[in-house]
């Protein structure tokens, strides 16, 4: 049971961070379908820090890993920013390309450094046993991960940013009616860049959190198994509002955690359902939830539409 709670909380943290990223980006008017790719890149940054700097004091190492993940995520999200803000590219296409590119490029990169270190090593894996330990505080068998705290802080900050802050309110105006925002002197380009970069940082953190969830060895060929898209579903279910997104993330986290821990429940094990069914569970629940939640969508009005000054 403790294990189920632990996994639920950690997967919920992943979904929460990434969904908040998607939420801010969409409020500024850019659909960020590249979240999945940004997660992979962020995970790479964090994993590299954990592998190379595990001799540092734990607090410093944790902060460094978080910074690396957020920074690389922001950097990678620039690909989306440049294409969709300045070149009016199709945001769906660019996002998809980013997802494919991230997995391929990270695999090539990790394989290259592994092979450079040891000519016989052609794997795309990074190991970070020591680094992972620094993220975890063991309380009577319950593994508290610092990321759970980071996620809670992120919700509060995003809430304050969006609703109690001039910048956030202006950013949301650009997602609702950019022409109107522009007419009162708000720079749409600047606001959209802010949205994209913040979403990049949050998704990068989410990616690092994801690879810390259960393992201390990550194979970069695998990517993050659709978590970026699950996070988008969490965002839609949460109606683009930080508080509701947190609740949605907990529900989805629970279903994802079940596939890791169902063996520990005698009554679930007795049902003898194949493990593939549990693997499918989060995606099925997501579809059903979306079917009900999407009807009355509170999506930002101008999301996905390139800003055109001449349009009224």
């Amino acid at each position: 049971m403790l294990l189920l709670i632990q996994y639920t909380l950690i997967f919920a943290s992943v979904l929460l961070l990434v969904a908040l990223g998607g939420c801010i980006s969409e409020h500024s008017g850019i659909i960020n379908l590249g979240l999945e790719g940004i997660m992979v890149v962020g995970a790479l940054g964090g994993a590299l820090v954990m592998r190379n700097f595990y001799t540092l004091p734990p607090a410093l190492m944790v902060i460094l890993a978080l910074l690396a993940a957020a920074l690389l995520g922001m950097l990678y999200s620039c690909l989306l920013g440049v294409a969709s803000i300045h070149f009016k590219a199709d945001q769906t296409l660019v996002g998809t390309a980013m997802n494919l590119l991230a997995t391929a490029a990270c695999t090539v990169f990790v394989k290259a450094i592994n092979t450079a270190a040891n000519p016989d090593d052609h794997s795309s894996e990074i190991e970070y046993v020591a680094g992972r330990k620094m993220f975890i505080v063991n309380i009577n068998g319950f593994e508290f991960n610092w990321f759970m705290l980071v996620a809670i802080i992120a919700v509060v900050l995003v809430y304050i940013f969006l609703y109690k802050n001039k910048l956030g309110l202006r950013l949301m105006a650009c997602g609702e009616h950019p022409q109107a925002a522009d007419s009162v002197g708000i720079s749409v380009v600047k606001m959209r860049w802010t949205g994209v970069l913040i979403s990049g940082a949050l998704a990068g953190l989410g990616g690092l959190c994801y690879i810390l969830a259960g393992v201390s060895l990550w194979k970069f060929e695998n990517g993050v198994a659709g978590f970026g898209f699950l996070a988008l579903a969490v965002m839609i279910f949460g109606q683009w509002k930080p508080g509701r997104i947190a609740v949605a993330a907990l529900i989805f986290g629970l279903f994802r955690a079940l596939s890791n821990t169902y063996v520990g429940f005698p009554f679930l094990k007795a049902l003898n359902i194949p493990s593939n069914v549990y693997n499918m569970m989060p995606y099925i629940v997501c579809l059903i939830v979306l079917a009900f939640a999407s009807k009355n969508s509170a999506a930002p009005k101008a999301e996905g539409i390139p800003y055109d000054k001449g349009q009224r």
């Binding site: 690909l79 294409a83 070149f87 009016k88 590219a89 199709d90 296409l93 660019v94 998809t96 390309a97 980013m98 494919l100 590119l101 997995t103 391929a104 490029a105 695999t107 090539v108 394989k111 290259a112 092979t115 000519p119 052609h122 795309s124 060929e221």
Partner: peptide
């Protein structure tokens, strides 16, 4: 000895990304 075959995935995903600029 130096590279991995995924380099062709990198090339094709960069091509998709650039296709976003075709209109421009």
């Amino acid at each position: 000895n130096f590279y991995s075959s995924q380099i062709s995935d990198v090339i094709s995903s960069i091509i998709i990304y650039l296709c976003g600029f075709v209109l421009f």
